[in-house]
Nucleic acid binder design. Structure first.
Lengths: 204, 204
DNA sequence: CCGGGAATGGCACTTTGCTGCCAGACTGGA
DNA sequence: TCCAGTCTGGCAGCAAAGTGCCATTCCCGG
């Protein structure tokens, strides 16, 4: 059990360096992937390592994150998106598991597990979740082909649904269905919140 | 008649430099006030000149604009906010009027008027609008005392109005009234738009 | 103490937004 | 051709948001 990312990194750096298979699930990557960007000299390392990463849909909306994901993807990492709530977890070579706990204030505690049985169990859960997740590409395709751009424009224009639907040449029901999908993707439960998040993610 | 701000500036710089009374109405100041920030050596000039500026409420929400306004205000300029739609207009010493026309593509045309009768007419319109506008300070006070911060928090949280009202300890009607005022202030006609603008203005 | 203006919040009502259901159109594969 | 899966959009019903009206309360100057 370690507290804070700094300590986690210090203690596990050698494990990461030696790993040939890294599986990672995360809600976002503000925590550490961004704080510790992959250095150029590590590109080869990424390529040599079997890297799998699984995120919540929200990551698609952070420009910095999206860039990072694209970088990882072009260097051999496999990225998937899951709809389900997941705990942040890292698996190394099927021998080490790192599970994030609750954050107490600003610091987050991490549990490093090496017990084979436990790691095995966690690994199987990860595999199940991985199997149920969607590849980043197809997910992105689904998003872009959604016509999200147009929908967002209409929403941001402040016009009412009926007007927007007519402008886009689509039925009212369909327009609202799109808005609902978009809001789910943004993790928003009100239109105000959706507007704020869309803007936050630089989608406007 | 001149096209584009560059040309306008080139041709009118000497007029601005010599003016002792500058009255200005604008929807925003992306156009020129920001593009041509007041240089330090002009502080004294601002102080010596009788400067009046009139804007739409929206300007309060752009950090850069707000900063500029504060700068101008602390250096003797009088700033007012008007609810009415206004055309961008500049009046110099009651002898010269500059009226912005429609923008054709990226370039905006400006009409520089020196005819005393015309200028006199425009000046009177400006005075009328000015008289009906609100001082920046009182406008800002109205905004801050509104408890906008709390309202915005609730809106951004995505909860429903009833919950938000209960959280803030006010009636549903009052909460919605506040939201409506806020939306008017933001110039938004839908909550999505309000969310986007609030975020855009850095209010979240 | 009193009167007037502003703020509040309850109530009723309209509008707008959200969603389940279902029928019809479209698509790709057997 | 037929079938199954997907997408669409109309309809209905409901939830949420927006608004006018008005009684009540609060505050402030007279």
């Amino acid at each position: 059990m370690v507290r804070g990312e700094a300590e986690l990194f210090e203690r596990t750096a050698h494990l990461f360096a030696a790993a040939t298979e890294v599986s990672c699930a995360a809600r976002d990557l503000h925590t550490w992937s961004v704080a510790h960007p992959t250095a150029p000299e590590r590109e080869q390392a990424v390529r040599d390592t079997n890297v799998r990463k699984m995120y919540l849909p929200g990551v698609l909306f952070d420009p910095a994150l999206a860039g990072h994901l694209r970088f990882m993807a072009t260097h051999g990492a496999r990225i998937r998106i899951t709809e389900r709530e997941i705990n942040e977890t890292i698996l190394l070579d099927r021998r080490i598991a790192i599970v994030a706990g609750d954050s107490v204030g600003e610091v987050r505690s991490y549990t490093v597990i090496s017990s084979p049985d436990l790691v095995q169990g966690i690994q199987s859960l990860f595999e199940a979740a991985w199997a149920g997740a969607t590849d980043l590409e197809s997910y992105q395709a689904r998003f872009t082909e959604l016509g999200a751009r147009e929908i967002l424009e209409q929403l941001a224009s402040g016009c009412k649904d009926e007007t927007a639907a007519r402008t886009l040449g689509v039925g009212l029901r369909t327009y609202r269905r799109r808005v609902a999908e978009l809001m789910e993707l943004l993790g928003a439960s009100s239109r105000f919140q959706a507007g704020a998040r869309a803007r936050e993610a630089g989608l406007l």
